[in-house]
């Protein structure tokens, strides 16, 4: 029997809770503290917890590095693409009102912010996991006596 049994059980229980919490923080950027950046870090933290417990190889099977690359690109493209779309529609860069004009209700603002924040979420979450993969894959080059 493995002596990390307790850590394993509790971490497995916590991973879905952390992911849902991160996305809650993302989608409630309007009403409370939150937004794409924080949410991305929290979602990445769930993946990092998985990698800590089950090893980085298992984590690379679950969240492949190719997905990470695609996620980074899609995030940046969503972010910049929102700006380009507003620009093409005749407004300034990131002029969200052009997306859906409504004099009473800032619907265009909401739509634009949702798109931009989704881009930030994708980019931050995947970049965080990518940094973890990059740093975690390094073998320690300091010998034990130097600590």
């Amino acid at each position: 029997m493995n002596s990390h049994l307790i850590l394993r059980t509790v971490s497995k229980f916590l991973i879905p809770l952390i992911v849902v919490y991160g996305l809650y923080v993302h989608f409630h950027g309007d009403f409370g503290p939150g937004g794409g950046f924080q949410a991305g870090v929290i979602v990445a933290a769930a993946v990092v917890l998985y990698a800590l417990i089950f090893g980085i190889d298992a984590c690379k099977v679950a969240v492949p590095p190719s997905w990470i690359r695609i996620g980074m690109t899609v995030g940046v493209m969503l972010f910049a693409g929102t700006g380009v779309v507003t620009w093409l529609l005749g407004g300034a860069f990131f002029d969200y009102d052009v997306l859906k004009y409504d004099p009473d209700h800032p619907a265009g603002q909401h739509l634009g912010i949702i798109c931009v924040e989704l881009g930030v979420l994708f980019t931050v979450a995947t970049v965080m996991v990518a940094i973890f993969y990059a740093f975690g894959s390094r073998t320690p080059d300091i010998s034990d006596e130097d600590w």
Partner: peptide, 23 residues
């Protein structure tokens, strides 16, 4: 949005192979 997040979380758990009686 909540339903989408829940589906994402369950999908991630499926990818991570931790969908069992401990999770």
């Amino acid at each position: 949005f909540g339903i989408a997040s829940v589906l994402f979380a369950v999908g991630l758990c499926y990818r991570m192979r931790i969908l069992d009686s401990e999770t």
